[in-house]
Design a binder for these strands. Structure first.
Length: 465
RNA sequence: GGCGUCGUGGCCAAGUGGUAAGGCAAGGGUCUGCAAAACCCUCAUUCAGGGGUUCGAAUCCCCUCGACGCCUCCA
């Protein structure tokens, strides 16, 4: 039984889907007006890992991720660049998709966009007005009425009375209650807008997700995810809208990832302390980012530093070490030891599943994998043949694959391998003649060129590093 | 000011009542011409601090200190 932490109840709960074997999962995506950063990568990776694991456990996952392509920031940026806002956002939609692909994140089932959901959004707002959960104001805006929603605040644990509305928010003259939020914003002159019963305008931030959810997944969903900075007001307001509209509980499980931290602060567009996904991938492999995310609980803040990145890289090397073949002179394990290897692989797999079942406890799951690594490496040291090692290695491949790790050995530039082979061969001759200085020189120089050489009794192995 | 999450060895981190997993780093060893890799051994009487509950607490309660997030756009 899978258990997962539900922000709504602040408890771990047994995972039970609305429909057997089907998971409806909606994850709040990004506002597309700039390069995505590693914080976005963290969130995307968390839900990619969850999705992969649910699929591994036999579920079909309908995974919806939206793009906010109509928004103040997009409009402002477009104005700066003298570009059409929808063209600008579309460019970044495609850019984001590339980033996701480069991070080895599985494509979502669908990617709704605000600009393409307009009729449904308007219909949704009309429905809310009919139910008197919302009202059209004199200025052309439409607001959701929080006072009419009895359990408003249940996700974030806030009470209307506690919230110091107006302290930092400009209370619009037209709002009946300071915490009422916009479903529809009247267009300012020259702004991109859509026709509506309330005049030209565009949707507020929260309504889009309610509408797209309804369109893509229906009135009720299993998992609603996003960064924990979205809990309030975004997700709180989504619940308010959708439940007022449908009269049914919206998402069964609210899942939120912790923030990625740079030097003690969260990374965000507004703080300007961000590292883009592209910048990251120029320096490190996609697996490194994923390993970083795996190394701590998804709900906890993730420290993004050179030190933690280095550690993640080392951890990957460790996993890879178990996947390497045996040396040529392996004598083979006794049947008993070979059987033990297989059973240890099985128990590692069970530990892995137990860990992941418990709210996707990836650090614990990794611990199970490290144990398997040690088992495999020990067997290799004791003379296991490749055939004997293979089942355990395949288990390791399977489980790291569930986490989305590729564990690829680095490749050399086209055709370079042949020349490395040649050098290694020559060096072996040199070593036979015990010309150690020369052979060490070759080893050092190759190291500088990214080739690691390892000598053993059975000869020399090399790889790109 | 309010709401929430959290504080475990040099670093990352698991552990929610039964006596501290794992990884990295470090030190020693096996192997090696030397390295590297792999393997073996060592590495927190202690879980921010102080009270309390309990036969027993890192785990529950209270207080203090500290960090972070949200309350305004944010993954």
């Amino acid at each position: 039984m899978i258990r997962l932490y539900n922000t709504l109840t602040r408890k771990k709960e047994d995972f039970q889907t609305l429909e057997p074997n089907l998971v409806r999962m909606y994850v709040c995506g990004v506002t597309v007006y700039n390069d995505a950063h590693v914080g976005h990568a963290m969130s995307a990776l968390v839900f990619d890992i969850i999705r992969r694991y649910l699929e591994y456990r036999g579920y079909t996952v309908k995974h919806v991720m939206n793009y906010t392509d109509v928004d103040d920031k997009i409009i402002n940026r477009a104005k700066q660049l003298g570009e059409d806002p929808l063209k600008l956002s579309q460019r970044y939609v495609e850019d984001y998709a590339r980033d996701m692909r480069d991070l080895n994140i599985l494509p979502a089932t669908s990617y709704p966009q605000v600009s393409r959901t307009m009729p449904l959004i308007i219909q949704f707002i009309e429905g809310l007005i009919q139910k008197e959960a919302a009202y059209a104001a004199s200025n052309g805006d439409v607001y959701f009425s929080v006072t009419g929603d009895e359990d408003y605040g249940k996700l974030s644990g806030r009470k209307l009375d506690d919230m110091q509305a107006g302290a930092r928010i400009e209370v619009g003259e037209a709002k009946a209650h300071p915490m009422d939020f916009a479903l529809w914003k009247a267009a300012k002159p020259g702004e991109i807008s859509w026709d509506s019963p309330w005049g030209k305008g565009r949707p507020g931030w929260h309504i889009e997700c309610s509408a797209m959810n309804l369109a893509e997944l229906g009135e009720q969903i299993d998992i609603h995810g996003g960064g924990n900075d979205l809990i309030f007001p975004h997700h709180e307001n989504e619940i308010a809208q959708t439940e007022s509209y449908t009269g049914k509980p919206f998402a069964r499980y609210w899942v939120h990832n912790g923030m990625l931290q740079m030097g003690g602060e969260k990374m965000s567009k507004s703080l300007g302390n961000m590292v883009s996904i592209k910048e990251f991938l120029q320096k490190r492999d996609a697996d490194v980012m994923r390993m970083l995310v795996l190394s701590s609980n998804y709900r906890a803040p993730l420290i993004f530093s050179e030190e933690t990145q280095d550690a993640a890289e080392k951890s990957l090397e460790r996993l890879k070490s178990a996947l390497r073949p045996v040396s040529v002179s392996a004598n083979g394990l006794a049947a008993e030891a070979a059987a033990a290897l297989v059973s240890q692989a099985d128990s590692a797999k069970q530990s892995f599943i137990d860990a992941m079942d418990d709210d996707f406890n990836t650090p614990l799951a990794l611990a199970a994998l490290y144990e398997l690594v040690k088992t495999i490496n020990t067997a290799r040291d004791q003379g296991a043949t490749n055939d004997q090692l293979k089942p355990a290695q395949e288990t390791l491949r399977e489980l790291t694959g569930v986490l989305g790790l590729r564990l690829q050995e680095k490749q050399g530039a086209g055709g370079a391998d042949r020349f490395v082979e040649l050098l290694v061969e020559v060096r072996s001759e040199v070593r036979k003649q015990k010309l150690w200085q020369l052979s060490d020189l070759i080893r050092d120089k190759l190291k500088e060129l990214g080739v690691t050489i390892e000598d053993s009794k059975d000869g020399t192995q090399w790889r790109w590093s």
